[in-house]
Design a protein around this nucleic acid. Sequence first.
DNA 1: CTTGACCCCGTAGCCAACTCCGGGGTGACA
DNA 2: TGTCACCCCGGAGTTGGCTACGGGGTCAAG
Lengths: 140, 140
Amino acid sequence: MNAPSESDMTIGQLARRAGSDVETIRYYERRGLLPPPPRAGNGYRRYPPDAARRLRFIRRAKTLGFTLAEIGELLSLREAGSNRAAVKQLARARLADLDARLADLQRMRDALADLDQRCSGQGPVSGCPIIEALDQEKTP
Amino acid sequence: MNAPSESDMTIGQLARRAGSDVETIRYYERRGLLPPPPRAGNGYRRYPPDAARRLRFIRRAKTLGFTLAEIGELLSLREAGSNRAAVKQLARARLADLDARLADLQRMRDALADLDQRCSGQGPVSGCPIIEALDQEKTP
DNA sequence: CTTGACCCCGTAGCCAACTCCGGGGTGACA
DNA sequence: TGTCACCCCGGAGTTGGCTACGGGGTCAAG
């Protein structure tokens, strides 16, 4: 059993099918996100069709902001058939992190947009609201 | 002239006064953000009082999201006494970058918040909306 | 005279997620 | 037989902004 199947792919074929990159796939394997596939006689990796599914899982999880470590956890959870609570906990942690980063960036954006609006863009640097804001203590 | 002044600081004093760190100051010097200060007879750096001002400039610019490279540009612009337009251009570029990152994070956040809300947190992983969303093609 | 805080230097390590390099084997096609 | 795309591997390099390390000098207090 487990004979090489017609539908198996090389790493390049997998990369194309999953919209990924050969080096990235090898990297994920080193990281433990992808199980080492069986090898053909020449040493080439031979991927079963569902390897593409796993790769796409990783890609989608990345678009939600999960780190590779977290994605590894998600994949384990899925395989272990464990409780949904663990998944939700991971999502919650990621959500909290996203909210924190959003708040930080939003604060930057608002402050900078305000300065940008107040800077005419004309005349010498001295007196420029942007430079002045950076230069001196804020007088609240 | 340029004799060591009473008000000069060692690097540690500067760090405390500017709310920074000794190692960070030396790093900024290597990066070219801070000019190499004159040295005392024992080789110690001796900073004039306005070094703290420059350090605080850097710190504030960081809170607006500028990179150290951009902060270096801002400092040069300030010293060169050049046109305000260059400053505004830097601010605009930073603003555009912040907006892009905000949009990206916001998209992640919304998608993840939606999944989180739809996941009961109870029961087995199979059927969990979060895992399912990652697992299969979106059906549009 | 010793302790401890401070200072000097160059270099290496850290984080994430790749990305590239060099050197070498494999396989389909002309 | 050549050539070209593909595959293998281990290891180093990239980005940004620090942070740590090791080994050594300096200085004021006690």
